[in-house]
Design a binder for these strands. Structure first.
Length: 475
DNA sequence: TCTCTGCTCAC
DNA sequence: CAAGTGAGCAGAGAC
């Protein structure tokens, strides 16, 4: 495959690597680039990439895809190169200290596991752990095996055994601590560019089949946030100096708004137009109560259904997720489909469209081809059907934030601001913002994000922005 | 050194 | 059978 096709299709790393050899052999290293030269490299990279993409254009078949190319992808190339070269500052002293703490806690959890198991082994090996748990300790006579025949020891399996078996909590703690240490706390400082003192991710523009970006070397799109210990790591992402702040702006419920808008479901569109809490509004409809009467559990269930819808989840998955019976889950889903009949119709129509045309598309016309949509194999076809439902939703959200990024890039340049857009995390943008520009920048961000791709049926798009001395505080 | 597997992090 | 899109780590085995 030639460079051009390889690049566009995402089989080769994009941007920085090809031109200055961030990880290529014998071409020097991104970490050695002179800080003063960074801008020149970025400009050169963008020019060449634009040229290559222009040559690739005749190969694109449909008008819709050309429009996605012209309006979304091509203009984004320069935006991404700028973001990659800009990078983001990381507090290495903080991470070094945190690493020691994680090390101590992991060691302690590991020792407790060996004590309780009555044997020492490699706790980091799922295979050895499975043998200890299910053959030596016989914790579950019906233990499940993976496709290669070893015992499954994933988090979902272990959590179910946690109440009867105290050893499980220590195993899970060990897993969490070592994951955080090896993947983030110890890895990030090594990725810092010696000249810029910052980490520079690479964004792949054509790897994810839905149109999302992906991020690697390092991946800055999966920095922990869910657990207390994980969240700490976000404190290590900081502004370039004390004259700057980190701003974080994210879309509120963007995928659900998109489902509502493209399905035209009256109840969900209305809920968004009235600015309601969408999960509470959903629960009220599904359980036939007023919004004030909705209980915590009902809202939790509704939230799960709303997410499940986006992924094409069935009663089995919902039951497993919520720890309820399949009958109960089925009842919730049936009610949901009755109350939100527009969404139910959208799902059926989209699968039918895919079966007839062999593809589905986003609001911008981005296509995903589904070669298995008419397969006679139930499992294979099922996957394709869930892809048919999910891809237009996830892909439209990707179109929207990509358009917003390009618009913002231009707006920041036009206003002659020094603040920089530095990260994208699917529905979030992060900025290294000069403090005196923040009051001007915030409305610019909100306006660009909310108006990048207006949704049908008057469904409002809402973006929220916050600031702080690190990525955690900015949220 | 390379590849696959199982697991876990994000949206 | 059963929830979509990614990236990266350590273990384990092939070469």
């Amino acid at each position: 495959m030639d460079l051009l096709s390889a690049k566009y299709l995402g089989y080769e790393p994009v941007h920085i690597e090809e031109l200055i050899g961030k990880k290529g052999k014998g071409q020097g290293n991104m970490r050695d680039v002179e800080p003063g030269k960074v801008k020149e490299y970025a400009a050169e990279d963008a020019d060449i990439t634009l040229q290559l993409m222009h040559q690739f254009k005749p190969l694109l078949k449909s008008l819709e895809v050309q429009s996605v190319f012209d309006k979304v992808e091509n203009p984004l190339v320069k935006v991404l190169t700028d973001m990659e070269f800009e990078g983001i500052r990381v507090d290495t002293d903080f991470l070094r200290e945190y690493s020691k703490e994680l090390e101590r806690e992991a060691k302690a959890a590991e020792e407790r596991v060996y004590q309780q198991a009555g044997v020492r082994f490699n706790l980091a090996s799922p295979r050895q752990l499975g043998e200890v748990l299910f053959e030596k300790l016989k914790l579950d006579p019906k233990a499940k095996k993976t496709k290669t025949g070893q015992y499954a020891t994933g988090e979902d399996v272990l959590v179910k055994m946690a109440l009867q078996n105290p050893i499980v909590d220590d195993i899970l703690a060990f897993r969490e601590l070592t994951k955080l240490k090896s993947t983030y706390v110890d890895a990030l400082p090594v990725m810092i560019n010696r000249k810029t003192g910052r980490v520079h991710t690479s964004y792949a523009q054509a790897v994810a089949v839905t149109g999302r970006l992906s991020s690697n070397n390092p991946n800055l799109q999966n920095i922990p946030v869910r657990t207390e210990r994980g969240r700490e790591i976000r404190k290590a992402f900081i502004p370039r100096d004390d004259r700057h702040l980190l701003l974080s702006a994210d879309y509120s419920q963007i995928e659900l708004r998109i489902v509502a808008a493209i399905s035209g479901d009256v109840n969900m569109c209305e809920a968004f137009r009235l600015g309601k809490d969408i999960h509470t509004a959903t629960a009220a409809k599904v359980y036939g109560v007023s919004e004030a009467e909705v209980t915590k559990d009902q809202r939790r269930h509704a939230k799960s259904v709303n997410f499940g819808i986006i992924y094409g989840q069935g009663a089995f998955g919902l039951a497993a997720n919520l720890g309820i019976s399949r009958t109960e889950a089925k009842e919730i889903i049936d009610n949901y489909k009755k109350e939100f009949s527009g969404i139910s119709r959208y799902m059926d129509d989209t699968i039918l469209f895919a079966k007839e045309n062999g593809y589905v598309q986003t609001l911008m016309g981005r296509k995903r081809w589904l070669r298995d949509i008419n397969s006679s194999n139930f499992t294979v076809r099922g996957f394709a059907e869930r892809n048919a439902i999910n891809s237009p939703i996830q892909g439209t959200a990707a179109d929207m934030i990509k358009l917003a990024m390009t618009a913002l890039h231009s707006a920041i340049k036009k206003a002659k601001l020094q603040s920089k857009m530095v990260l994208q995390v699917h529905d979030e943008l992060v900025f290294d913002a000069l403090k005196e520009e923040v009051d001007q920048l915030k409305p610019l961000i909100i306006e660009s994000m909310q108006n990048a791709l207006p949704l049908p049926n008057n469904v409002p798009v809402i973006a929220e922005v916050g600031g702080g001395a690190n990525w955690l505080e900015a949220h």
